[in-house]
Design a protein around this nucleic acid. Structure first.
Lengths: 258, 258
DNA sequence: CCCCCTAATTCCACTTAGTGGAAATGAAGG
DNA sequence: CCTTCATTTCCACTAAGTGGAATTAGGGGG
């Protein structure tokens, strides 16, 4: 009857695979282990189904079983695949080294991110610190799209229809302060259109600027620069913005000739 | 009839989910995009099945579609999940900072890895360089288990039955020099049992030592230290080994009290 | 030490969701 | 414009997957 399509109120696709992926997603940063019960709760799937799917994920090497606590944790395979994603990314390959150099030269944080649903996820985030030992690089960390310069630059870079979809999702997500927030987001988007970048101070004493990178055949990325322990000032923002615009121009040049 | 078990000559599990994961695994480092045809070749799955599963993976956010070349690439979600794995790992959480400090103090590379099938995958690899700008950290990179100090330390740390399974796999994999290689592997394992570490010079002018970390309720890990641009010498190897043993002891202390 | 209680796993009848060969569609090139 | 290769859609078939119920396995008390 059904032709591998449109199962109970869904879109095309393979239900078991979708559910298996949902289970993997249930492991968020900070969550170490999850038992089948907790997974069932978080995903809304029947317990017996979860039991079978986690078994499959263990066999496929995506989950490790912790027999003692009857629980599972993400296995090493997931970072292998993550690594394949990063090394496969043409953008990161081309400009990763430039980002490091720029971070060292300007003494600030430089990041490259793209969207995962309604979050921005860093492909690379180079954290500058005066002490060399504290400098570090993070990949995979998520920050909220609507609250960050990265996310707003991304929104400015994507197709309008998609942007409006996402804005609706934010509205549904945060009950309070929605109106002001959305206005803020739109201001940032205009700022990108006018100046090439937007500045947001999402976290206290951190000033961040970001700009979109739009390339044919690739998802939209956003590039950012940020400084910790500073007072937010318009002058500083426009200085950072100028650095960012110059750097982004250099990146786009390199990427265009790939 | 079939109760979600033992489909055509397989073990228990969900076939579609297994296949979907296989598709994700087909994207190895260096492979940027893959079309459905190539995926079908690499995985041995029927083309129509691949077509449906890739669509599902796109809907689930694990793959990005590149319409222009009718191909797919791994999406940002996979590094989100990879990041969740790393932050969820109690071992990396506890000793990551210590590893950085040790790398800076001893001026050498420090790595933590575990197994993904027959490969070792780095949870963290801290690459020391005299120039601060060149120091970097990699996660997810794979190295062959049977050829590296990391892999051999891991083999020394796991249950004997599992070890013998893996050794058989290596035999099947590399046709040439198998006998000598396996003897080498066993020598390394004895070396771990006797000295606490093993030394291997897998890549030219790189000397590496590694030791297993075995903890209740966690997969076996391996910790390594390595130096580039050195001549292999027994004296240097035992010096590195001593550093490693001291460091591993400190790590185990921290991990025991978690 | 045994028994209860909770949670995970297995069982099983049901039937839909998935399958893969064949047809259709679509892109690239002569 | 027509051919060729590749990818996607179609569709009849049925095995694979489902989820509620029964069962088993842990893990605290009593």
């Amino acid at each position: 009857m059904a032709q591998a399509r449109r199962y109970a109120g869904g879109v095309d696709g393979n239900r078991s695979l979708e559910r298996g992926i949902e289970i993997l997603r249930a492991f968020r940063p900070g969550v170490d282990t999850l038992g089948n019960g907790e997974i069932a709760e978080r995903t809304g799937l029947p317990r017996s189904t979860v039991s079978r799917l986690t078994r499959t994920l263990v066999n496929s090497g995506m989950l490790d079983e912790v027999r003692a606590e009857r629980a599972y944790r993400l296995a090493a395979s997931v970072i292998s695949i993550g690594h394949a994603m990063r090394t496969g990314s043409p953008v990161l390959n081309e400009i990763g080294a430039m980002m490091r150099a720029e971070s060292a030269k300007r003494r600030l944080n430089v990041g490259l991110a793209t969207a995962d649903r309604t979050m921005m996820v860093y492909l690379e985030s180079i954290r500058y610190s005066p002490r060399a030992a504290l400098r570090n690089v993070v990949a995979g960390q998520q920050v909220p799209m609507e609250l960050t310069s990265l996310g707003r630059a991304y929104l400015a870079g994507i197709a309008e229809t998609r942007r409006e979809q996402l804005l609706k999702l934010f509205k549904r997500r945060s009950a309070a302060a929605t109106k002001a927030l959305l206005a803020d987001v739109r201001t940032s988007i205009s700022s990108v259109e006018r100046d090439g970048y937007c500045a947001v101070s999402w976290q206290p004493a951190v000033l961040a600027v970001a700009t979109p990178i739009v390339l044919e055949g690739l998802p939209v990325y956003a590039l950012n620069m940020s400084l910790q322990n500073v007072d937010r000032s318009a002058a500083l923002a426009s200085e950072l913005g100028a650095y960012l615009n110059a750097f982004a121009a250099k990146c786009k040049e390199v990427l265009a000739s790939r």
